[in-house]
């Protein structure tokens, strides 16, 4: 389609729509009343968060920052995984680096194109931090970055994510509001509520459809 045809399509669509709303008074729109969810205690929020994730087949492990390396080593040991993809200079990289040399650490210090096949075929597990989390729906919120790119939570079959309970919000709406997301959004935001799944064959749930088969949530609760 040429640029001219493109402009014609755009102009036609907008003209048809504008003709219908000409003179509309947007100051007189009806009030949209949201539902007010009862406020719940912090401990209840944490247990809500854990319950939802667990119901969705994620494994939530309560731990501390000091015990992170040990927990990760345990998980990898149980799964007989020796390699771990992590982000250099990320929030918990110092703790993760303590895993050396028992675990072969691989930093995501390359571009996707350079090691695409390696990421798909030879990267059994990854570990990332998280931006926030949501109690009402049991979600982990990722703001992938240069240090922790977005494929880290997508391509390896096992994803371990570290969640600081101080960053737990009651629901999605209050998170967006509190952090004023409309002012600045990164390239990509991800909400994750469990390992990848599908019920596309005869409504039977199967995990690990395309993304991670296993999701471990290390919950730091001081």
């Amino acid at each position: 389609m040429t640029k001219l045809q493109h402009n014609i399509a755009r102009a036609n669509i907008l003209a048809k729509l504008k003709q219908q709303v000409a003179g509309a008074d947007y100051t007189k729109l009806p009030i949209e009343t949201p539902y007010h969810y009862p406020e719940i205690e912090r401990e209840q929020q944490i247990s809500q968060f854990i319950t939802h994730l667990t119901n969705n087949h994620a494994q939530v492990i309560k731990t501390t920052q000091a015990a992170l390396a040990e927990q990760v080593a345990d998980i990898l040991n149980t799964l007989k995984i020796e390699n771990l993809l992590y982000g250099k200079d990320s929030t918990y990289s110092q703790e993760i680096e303590q895993l050396n040399p028992t675990v072969k650490l691989q930093a995501f210090d390359f571009t996707l194109e350079d090691k695409k096949e390696h990421l798909f075929n030879n990267t059994p597990a990854s570990i990332t931090s998280s931006h926030a989390s949501i109690a009402a729906t049991g979600c982990i919120v990722l703001w992938p970055s240069k240090n922790e790119p977005r494929t880290m939570s997508l391509i390896p079959p096992v994803h371990i994510v570290i969640v600081d309970a101080n960053d737990l919000y009651s629901d999605f709406a209050s998170l967006v509001k509190a952090q004023q997301w409309q002012n600045k959004l990164p390239t990509n935001v991800l909400l994750i509520s469990g390992p990848s799944k599908t019920a596309d064959i005869q409504q039977t749930l199967a995990y690990g459809a395309h993304g991670p088969e296993k999701l471990f949530v290390l919950l730091l609760n001081s």
Binding site: L185, T187, A199
Partner: peptide, 23 residues
Amino acid sequence: TGQIMSTYFNMISHPRQIGEKDG
């Protein structure tokens, strides 16, 4: 599907930006 939340919710605001490694 009766899920309180889907497994993923993906919000895309930019193509890959300078220095980013994927996307």
